[in-house]
Design a protein around this nucleic acid. Structure first.
Lengths: 202, 202
DNA sequence: CATTATTAGACAGCTTAACTTTCTAACTAC
DNA sequence: GTAGTTAGAAAGTTAAGCTGTCTAATAATG
């Protein structure tokens, strides 16, 4: 199909499709002449993924480019894949250098085997710092609850990664990690509502 | 203190402090003359909260204004407070009107008592839609896991809300809901890392 | 074959958000 | 009295994510 049909099928304006091509998010079509190219079903699917990452996933263009590059990359070992996927994932601005010691102390307490300089450690540190700055006291007990819940989810998540195809595994990890996040947050808010409603009615 | 000291103490540039005053995020100081005003410790604390909401919380100025208005509001019943806090919380763009039926079916399955038109239902629906659009099949079993984890967290969260002071309760709910979200996501990613590392080493 | 529509690629322009700078008239501190 | 500070308003800045315009080439149609 040509670009106008691709745009129609995907619901993305032609100008925006061209923009994604320029930005390297969408692979170029098969050129048939100097001013013509053919696009396929994979382009339609890729556009849906791009919109999901940019919209629901909340990624910037440059982060999405990195994530998609990881998805496209035929990766190495399963563990390396998860690492590569995670390091392509968005985190906070790098110029921020929060104090990692508190976060690392918690991780040691839980005996989690993670790299000390993993980007998620910085995210955790920054999150804890923001809570503190906002005057919200976090007890170890509360963080332990969150860590336990997160670890249970993570265990099942990893168990469900399809290990047969490396490419499929990376795709699963990247999309599952990123796009399940808004779902988890929405569920937590709905759970708050439910618990609060039950307390009121009893 | 005067504005330059407030700026120094909070680490926020004077121009930005003025901007937050203009935008109604920071209450005005006590005016001592036509071109002079006094600020106090509460202004320093408020600035820290504003930066946490805008930075780590990822809120826009206008959403932060709504959230802070909820924090300032001496609210009603505990349940209403949680509702008010949640409706002030950021969600997706309102112009999007995703199909809520799938999300509502899940909520009925879990027998959660939530408003059908709660903003979090739209977020959930949109999240599920994004997963589907990205070609990630979500099983009921997987969503049940996430729902159970979210509900356990939510139960404990609500139990810890200080019910003595309404103002303090709203503040706790708003900040706790918003600023624990990045912490939860960071923990989930670290759990992925840990689980993956353990699988590799055994 | 002639006419009309479409396209790739380059580039400039637009819109919004979050600041940041500049300005003026008033103050304050020494 | 003189140098520095401030409130408030308004204009300017920067970055992200598109969106519109243009040109030469190609395709579709009668």
């Amino acid at each position: 199909m040509r670009i106008s049909e691709l745009a129609r099928r995907s619901g993305v304006p032609v100008g925006t499709v061209k923009y994604y091509l320029r930005e390297g998010l969408l692979p170029a079509g098969e050129p048939t002449a100097a001013t013509q190219a053919q696009y396929g079903e994979d382009h339609v699917a890729r556009l849906a993924l791009i919109r999901a990452l940019l919209g629901t996933g909340g990624l910037s263009i440059s982060t999405a480019r990195a994530v998609l590059a990881a998805v496209d990359d035929p990766a190495l070992s399963p563990h390396d894949m998860i690492g590569a996927a995670h390091s392509a994932l968005p985190t906070m601005a790098e110029n921020e250098r929060p104090d990692l010691s508190t976060a690392q102390a918690h991780l040691r307490r839980w005996e989690w085997q993670v790299h000390e300089d993993s980007p998620a450690v910085s995210s955790l540190a920054q999150g804890l710092l923001a809570l503190q700055a906002a005057g919200f006291d976090t007890t170890d007990q509360m963080l332990d609850r969150y860590a336990r819940a997160a670890h249970e989810l993570g265990e099942q998540d990893v168990a469900e990664v399809p290990m047969d195809s490396p490419a499929e595994a990376v795709r699963y990890v990247v999309i599952g990690t990123l796009l399940l996040e808004p779902v988890l947050l929405a569920l937590r808010r709905l759970a708050h509502e439910d618990v609060s409603a039950r307390r009121l009615s009893t």
